[in-house]
Simulated scan of single mutants.
Amino acid sequence: MRHFFSLLALSAFASAAAAPLTLTLSLTDGGEQFFHHHPLMVNGQALSVQDVRFYVSGVALVRADGSEVPVAGLSLAELNKGTPPRHIEIFKGDAPTGEYRGLRFDVGVPRELNHRDATTAEAPLSIDDGMYWAWNSGYIFFSLHGNVGGTKVAHHIGGDSRRITVDLADLQKPGTALTVGAAGLTVPLNLDLQKLYAQGAGGEAWDFRKPAYQQVHFGPVADQFFLNASRAFSRAAERADPSVGRPVMPRDGH
């Protein structure tokens, strides 16, 4: 993962100490852990996933009253066969300490950055990062590459209207609270790859044998892929800490 931190002043933190807020991601296949050496079975077809990449921006912690505390930064999450598909750091920024009900973030690039000149931008918005559509004057927000029976597939989401907002703040459930302490907080997330292919255009089954489902960039299949992706992220389950009898967030590698 590479970071691009905005030049916003941190004056919002003046009344509270800042601590690191880290988001990690694990890939799943339905309710099970995903492994790169196992194919993703979609409608009876075996999809070998090569890489998953997406931008994380607009991160905000949500207070109990529903107001948001922005956490500045933009990062490019990269998950491929060279990285374990569990607890990969996808974002890190500074947040004020305190109690929160949850968090929200966007998958994509803010409009004010989406149409800048990628040839002069720094990572992770550089043209060398391979996430820019020169023909479409904008960035690819989310991409998955792989192959099915030797046929290469590329599934992309992009465009200002397709920035995904992931809302993980439920004001009706006290158990969803987050505490940013002096040492910071790591929030584990899941991306269910199976949900990306929940259905194809018009509600039909996703079929990699059809060209429309192999190279997906725009049109009705891309519209459905966007809707599928917007439902594929979730907050990972917490594990119990037997020493104190309350849930704690799992850390990388555990």
Rank of each mutant, 00 (worst) to 15 (best):
G58V: 07
K81C: 15
G66I: 05
V71L: 07
S75F: 03
A77Q: 00
P39V: 09
V49R: 03
H37C: 14
D65P: 00
F34S: 08
S57M: 06
L74F: 11
L47S: 07
V69R: 00
A46N: 02
A77N: 02
H38G: 14
L40P: 01
V59L: 09
G73K: 02
V59F: 09
K81N: 15
L79Q: 06
E78L: 15
Y55G: 10
H38W: 09
F54C: 08
H37P: 07
V62Q: 01
N80R: 13
L40Y: 04
V71T: 09
G73L: 02
Q45M: 08
H37S: 15
N43G: 12
P70D: 08
E68A: 15
A64S: 07
V69C: 10
R53I: 10
F54E: 02
P70I: 15
Y55H: 06
K81V: 15
P39M: 01
Y55N: 04
N80H: 14
M41E: 12
G73R: 04
R63N: 12
V59T: 13
S75N: 06
V49I: 11
Q45S: 11
L79T: 14
V71F: 07
L79G: 14
A64K: 01
F35R: 12
S75G: 14
L47V: 09
G58P: 00
A72S: 13
L76G: 11
E68C: 14
R63W: 05
A72T: 11
E68H: 09
L76I: 14
L47P: 06
P70H: 08
H38C: 13
N43E: 07
S57I: 04
D65Y: 03
A77H: 02
P70C: 11
N43W: 01
K81T: 15
S67T: 12
G44W: 02
A64I: 04
G66K: 02
D65G: 10
A60R: 02
Y55P: 01
S75W: 01
L76E: 04
D51S: 14
V56Y: 03
A64N: 05
R53D: 05
D65C: 10
S75M: 05
V59D: 05
F35W: 10
Q50E: 09
G44T: 01
A64E: 04
D65W: 00
L76T: 10
S67G: 11
G82I: 15
V52K: 02
A72E: 07
H37M: 10
G44N: 05
S75H: 03
L74Q: 04
A77C: 10
L47A: 13
S57W: 03
L76N: 03
P70T: 15
V62E: 01
F35H: 10
D51F: 10
Q50R: 09
F34P: 00
V59N: 05
L79W: 06
K81S: 13
R53M: 11
S75A: 14
E68M: 12
P70A: 15
G82M: 09
S48M: 10
V42A: 09
G82R: 06
A46G: 07
D65R: 01
V69F: 03
V69G: 08
F34E: 03
F34R: 00
Q50V: 13
N43F: 05
Q50G: 14
A60G: 12
H36Y: 12
V69M: 08
E68G: 13
A46R: 00
E68I: 12
R63C: 14
Y55I: 11
V42M: 07
